[in-house]
């Protein structure tokens, strides 16, 4: 799965979770940039991504997410090329 595909799916996830069709995320997006992205919404994003991509994140991986770029990279490493 290439960058464009991952980000397109990620945008869908963000739009669903925050119920905002206007959201577009990129690698530099952080929790400060999205209204309502608190710790509860964070778990929602993780679970939504797990369901959408059919993957599972490890506890240690959840500790190392700082921005959407980290998230996208992690997803890519799990779904493979």
């Amino acid at each position: 799965m290439n960058d464009t595909q991952v980000y397109s799916q990620l945008n869908e996830i963000f739009r669903e979770v925050f119920d905002d069709e206007g959201i577009t995320v990129d690698a530099a997006t952080t929790a400060h940039d999205v209204e309502g992205w608190d710790s509860a919404a964070h778990v929602s994003l993780i679970v939504a991504a797990e369901m959408k991509f059919g993957i599972r994140f490890r506890t240690a991986e959840l500790d190392s997410l700082h921005n959407v770029g980290d998230f996208a990279q992690l997803i890519q490493s799990k779904v493979g090329a």
Binding site: V43, S44, V47, M51, R58, T59, L62
Partner: peptide, 14 residues
């Protein structure tokens, strides 16, 4: 277990 350690959830979003 992951959701518990991450957010003290007994029932996860899923």
């Amino acid at each position: 277990a992951v959701r518990w350690h991450q957010a003290k959830q007994l029932v996860s979003h899923a």
